[in-house]
Amino acid sequence: MHRFVRPDGRRALRKRRPDMPASFFAAEARGLAALREAGGLRVPEVYAVGADFIELEDLGESTPGADYFRRAGAGLARQHARRDARFGFAHAGWCGDSPQDNTPDADGHRFFAERRLLPQARRARDAGLLEADDAARVEHVCARLREWIPAQPPVLLHGDLWTGNLHCDARGAPALIDAGAVHHGWAEAELAMLTLFGAPPPCFFAAYAEHAPLARDWRERAPLYNLYHLLNHLNLFGTGYLGRVRAVLRRYG
């Protein structure tokens, strides 16, 4: 990542990945545009995008202030107010370095099974990262999703919102970065990922709940939603994530 000042005086950063398909940065540009239109949280402006790079507004960074997390929770709730008729997105995306199929579907449980869990499980099985029994347990989970996950509308998600992608800009405002996984999905799934690798403080979720519906028992379902991200990390980073995947599968599969 290269930071520089543009001829017009605006500070910018350029990310370059010559090892990735052209769709990689195109997906990020589309995701940032969708998030900006929703008006929930600040996102960087896209200055240019090419086959192997994206040039973005440099938001800077600072230390979160006293009201940062409340502002972040309220902003995410505003983003989640942007609904669609179907789950998915008009274009495919990327969750980290993994391609993400966003083919739209009116059925959220089917979308989560067929576009999220099963492709990751097949990829891991083909790579020898999952045993046949593990893969069968993922299929069992998919078959029973309706028993555990209540019906929810498809809302606009960042899609890869771990705490590192919730960014404190130079002014102390919450912002979103790395938006290649944007799609319409379950709001609870977004909140669940925010608890996967660390978590915002309780005031974040309290502020969210002041502006958007939030079931009291949503955290009980967090492992199911996070199974997708754990499988993705298993595929991207190896067997260090296998124990966490299997812990979820033992609980539900």
Rank of each mutant, 00 (worst) to 15 (best):
V141I: 11
N235Q: 02
F89N: 08
C203R: 12
P202T: 00
W148A: 15
G73C: 04
G253Q: 00
H167N: 09
R86D: 11
L13P: 15
G93N: 06
A38G: 10
K15Q: 10
A106E: 11
R86K: 11
D19R: 00
L117S: 10
L224F: 03
P201G: 12
H184W: 12
Q152W: 09
F69M: 07
A51E: 15
R83N: 02
H229N: 10
I177Q: 09
G93V: 10
L157W: 12
L214R: 00
L227A: 02
H167S: 10
N102G: 08
A199W: 02
R110W: 04
F4H: 14
E220I: 01
L13S: 12
G39C: 06
D134G: 05
V138F: 00
G96M: 04
I54P: 11
R42D: 05
R82H: 13
L35R: 02
L156Y: 03
L157T: 03
G39R: 04
F197G: 10
W94K: 08
G40P: 15
A106N: 09
H211L: 06
A33C: 12
R82W: 04
E45C: 04
A151L: 14
L32T: 06
P104H: 01
Y228A: 12
F4E: 07
L129S: 10
S23K: 04
G31L: 02
L194M: 15
R36E: 14
V141S: 06
V46G: 06
A26E: 09
G185E: 07
S62D: 09
L118A: 14
R244F: 03
E114N: 12
L118C: 11
N226E: 02
E220T: 10
H184N: 14
L130P: 12
A206L: 10
E220F: 03
Q152A: 15
R3A: 15
G243Q: 10
D84Y: 03
T103E: 13
D8V: 05
H2W: 04
A92S: 13
A29S: 12
R146L: 12
F69S: 06
E210I: 00
D101M: 09
A74N: 04
L32E: 04
A173P: 14
R11D: 13
G93D: 05
F112Q: 09
P223V: 07
L236E: 08
A85N: 09
P174S: 07
P99S: 06
A74P: 06
A187G: 15
G128D: 05
F197N: 05
G96C: 09
G65T: 00
G50P: 12
G31F: 00
F24M: 11
D105Y: 01
A121N: 08
F87A: 15
L231M: 02
E57C: 05
T63C: 10
A151I: 08
L249G: 01
A12E: 11
A192M: 07
P202M: 02
D217W: 01
L249K: 01
A124G: 07
L214F: 01
H211Y: 01
R115T: 05
R16P: 14
A215N: 01
E131G: 15
M1D: 13
G240Q: 00
D67S: 11
Q120R: 15
L224Y: 01
V49T: 07
R251I: 03
